[in-house]
């Protein structure tokens, strides 16, 4: 039984910095099956029309964070966005904004991960460790539920207009990671963590624009996490902590 397909034109931003002076757009018309995702559409282009296209992918189930890109005017994961969910045609696809393009839809994520590394993104529990698990109440565990869902896709840092003009800004993802450890009842370096984000390029750079929240594929409220850190810093300053 043949599945009914619809022709869809994708307009994809192409750029190879080694050979192209500037980015340009190319259109490809593919046959879209019902339920087809943008990632599948990109593979359709790669496999049938243009092998020179480059993009990142991995899990195709919205859990690995590899395929963030600008789709139909908003940063989304290509694997969980259906072609039919974007109404405007041609369907515009370009790399995440304000990140250096390596090629086509592939961007340089190194600065993102460098920022992440700078805030000690790991638990520092009391040593020696107990013979069993470190106990944590259900209530304390619940504080982690939202921030641990971050898949490090970089959408938030790409959407953050503050990060655009301050490349040193730690950024919403890393600050949310810092928050994740600050609120973890098992962590022992809360003060040091607060110090790390207490700077011009830290929490105080956040102007509560909420772009990060708007694009987060995991519906994490990074802005709220950053404001929590700010409040903790103020409380600490005035001796309430």
């Amino acid at each position: 039984m043949a599945i009914a397909t619809t022709p869809v034109t994708l307009k994809i931003q192409r750029f190879n910095p080694d050979t192209d002076k500037e980015p340009y757009w190319r259109e490809y018309t593919i046959q879209a099956k019902p339920g087809m995702t943008v990632l599948e559409a990109l593979f359709e282009v790669l496999n049938k029309y243009d092998g020179t296209l480059s993009f990142r992918f991995c899990c195709r189930g919205a859990i690995c964070g590899a395929c963030s890109m600008m789709i139909g005017g908003k940063i989304r994961l290509a694997c969980e966005t259906q072609v039919s969910a974007i109404k405007k045609r041609p369907l515009m696809i370009s790399p995440m904004p304000h990140k250096k393009v390596i090629k086509d839809l592939v961007v340089d994520m190194d600065p993102f991960f460098e920022q992440m590394r700078s805030i000690k993104p790991y638990l520092v529990a009391k040593e020696p460790f107990p013979e069993k698990e470190i106990y944590q109440s259900e209530k304390d565990r619940a504080k982690l539920t939202e921030p641990i869902d971050c898949i490090l896709c970089g959408s938030c840092s790409s959407a953050c207009t503050v990060a655009w003009w301050d490349p040193n800004y730690i950024g919403p993802a890393s600050l949310t990671k810092a928050y994740r450890f600050v609120v973890d009842s098992r962590d022992t370096i809360r003060d040091e963590r607060l110090d790390m984000v207490d700077s011009e390029d830290g929490v105080w750079r956040c102007h509560t624009i909420f772009n990060c929240v708007d694009v987060c594929p995991k519906k994490i409220n990074q802005t709220d996490a950053i404001q929590y850190l700010k409040r903790q810093l103020v409380k600490r300053k005035i001796g309430l902590l």
Partner: peptide, 19 residues
């Protein structure tokens, strides 16, 4: 698994706070 927990893995908890 205890080791993973000590390194920060956020396991869900029992009412007593165990994994």
């Amino acid at each position: 698994i205890y080791e993973m927990e000590h390194w920060g893995c956020p396991f869900s908890r029992t009412p007593e706070g165990k994994i």
